[in-house]
Design a protein around this nucleic acid. Structure first.
Lengths: 344, 344
DNA sequence: AGCGCTTACGTAAGCGCTTACGTACCCTAG
DNA sequence: CTAGGGTACGTAAGCGCTTACGTAAGCGCT
């Protein structure tokens, strides 16, 4: 078979520089044992020839990959695309490539994608999105990741815990707490929650924060109407419909992410419910459009892009005995979608 | 050196099936020259062992990569994230992996990313986003892609022409035309355009459509105020400010993409300019949030996700003598951001 | 002077696959 | 019964790199 590519190879560089393959390799890798003089010559030749190492050969020989696999639920969901942007930014700065996969919010498919990425020999796996309450699924993923890391891979989770790997985690509970407090401060007593799928840990955590805030003020959790749907705009619309129908006394809706909040706002608009005068709405995440909605959305800001970068940073460091947790800051951003509770 | 990975190799499969390496390879690749009986046995063994081919070794040996490189301006821009979603979907169905790069709307950096992807030996390059009017840049990219394709690579462009590769292209001119016509039908006479960077072909094309529509109705292009900024929300805000200040007679703003339209709406809201009663606004692309804005946005719908899929489909087909062009449909979607021109 | 140590480089053995080519076998035709 | 040709499989040569190990030269030391 003829050579597949016409690109210059390491031997070409070595020949031009009149050294051996090994020396050329060492020089370009910046490793010890090459005099600065020779190393400079080799680098010079490589530049002139436009030499770029073949990553396939390199990986095959060394066993060390330089590509990172990123699993998100959906890239066209702003929450995930902002995370992806952060990961890609940092990866690009580090000369790494990012292979991206969509799980479509399906735990089975996600596990399959994870296996696929590992089989493809990526060096780093980043997995984002909420975890699932399904213990079978989580332990399968955990086992897969553990085996992966035992063979020298590195993994980190974004916004997700309990996988036995390093994680960058927002304080979902505190965020939920802050939202509920904000609404209670405004005098709201009948609060409804538009929640994502019941099986998600993120949902459970954010909800727990909301409940605890109510409890602290002596409210009964029974005062809280929780409607489960899914973490999409469509899910938000559905949840809002149900809230309006089943809990007409509601004066404030906590959507557990911004996508749902957008759906909620959309339904309220079409049902001619004025926001915030008749109904306050809050979201969670602060995706970049949140500020441009009408009314602009009160929400909890998470630094998604930074979370992506941090996760990759964690994964680039050597593994520690116990998985690390990097908390992320969060911030209540008050905008125009919340206001005082209407007089009854 | 010890073996890098503990994963089963092809030799393991071959041994367990009591055949040679070559036969095992042939059987798993589904190539000729293996009796069905033996092939079945090999596949069976492979399954039992959980064998997955090492893509690095495979690529090194065969020279044929199975990863596609995708260049976008920014993944957290909904236009691009929807395209990316389409590409990733189809790639995943085909067992391909997607390596994604952000050019950050910088032609130099984009060229660099392109070179990097090619150096990384991806098999397919998809490049999206507008082209640049800079002939030096475009011809450098074109040359790079031509060389890449001559060495067996495949490339396709999304929403971008003149690169000498297959392209899936919306009819930007017709879209611009339709928007202008829609506004004129509503009685608008003083129309302003919030355009992206002047150097982009997409901007030129969409603008040309707008101008031609005006000309057909006997309007002078001088009636059209064109403000250049960039294709982001911030750019839309800036453009809107300038339009309000310098062209107060304007009753309708054509934003040349939805991101800018969102910025325009945001500025109008803060300046208390009612939409559409005092000012109509249209966008271009129909990103998924466009329908959820307040007011919902009149815009031209482009099938971004499908465009991503189509581009990959094109790239998976053998190259033709002349680059193919796949037009995409477009559709004027009338929503609440446009209305009759106010009486003067 | 001779010893060992370090330094700088070369040699060559893989990494796990694909594939050109060689070989054994069986079938059919002459 | 043998030549010719097809089929099924094995052998081995790479793909372009990394790296363990070998070697030769230079150094200081006793």
């Amino acid at each position: 078979m003829p050579r597949a590519s016409q690109r210059p190879r390491l031997v070409d560089v070595a020949e031009h520089a009149a050294v051996s393959l090994a020396t050329a390799s060492r020089a370009l890798a910046g490793r010890e044992g090459v005099s600065t003089e020779v190393a400079d010559r080799i680098r010079q030749v490589a530049r002139e020839l436009g030499y770029v190492a073949n990553p396939y050969a390199r990986t095959l020989a060394s066993g060390a990959t330089s590509t990172v696999g990123l699993i998100v639920h959906q890239v066209d969901d702003p929450y995930f695309s902002e995370i992806a942007a952060g990961v890609i930014q940092l990866a690009s700065e580090q000369g790494l490539l990012v292979q991206i996969c969509q799980s479509g919010r399906d735990p089975d498919y996600e596990l399959q994608q994870l296996r696929h990425l590992i089989a493809q020999r990526v060096g780093i796996v980043l997995i984002s999105g909420s975890g699932y309450d399904d213990p079978r699924m989580e332990s399968a993923a955990r086992a897969e990741l553990a085996a992966f890391q035992d063979h020298g891979g590195r993994a980190a989770a974004i916004g997700r815990h309990a996988l036995g790997v390093d994680a960058v985690l927002p304080d979902n509970e505190a965020g939920g707490h802050a939202l509920a407090q904000h609404l209670m401060d405004l005098g709201h007593r009948r609060i409804a929650v538009a929640a994502g799928s019941a099986g998600l840990t993120t949902v459970a955590d954010r909800l727990a924060g909301v409940s605890s805030a109510l409890r602290e003020r002596g409210r009964s959790p029974a005062d809280l109407a929780v409607v489960h749907s899914d973490f999409t705009r469509g899910g938000g619309r559905a949840a809002a419909e149900q809230i309006l129908n089943d809990h007409p006394e509601t004066t404030a809706i906590i959507a557990l992410n911004d996508a749902m909040a957008m759906g909620v706002l959309s339904t309220l608009r079409s049902r001619r419910v004025p926001v915030p005068t008749r109904m306050s709405v809050v979201g969670f995440d602060d995706v970049s459009v949140a500020a441009d909605l009408a009314p602009s959305l009160t929400t909890i800001r998470l630094p998604m892009t930074e979370m992506g970068r941090t996760a990759l940073t964690l994964a680039l460091k050597p593994r520690t005995a116990r998985p690390r947790r990097r908390p992320t800051g969060h911030l209540l951003v008050v905008r125009d979608s919340t206001g005082p509770a209407p007089r009854t």
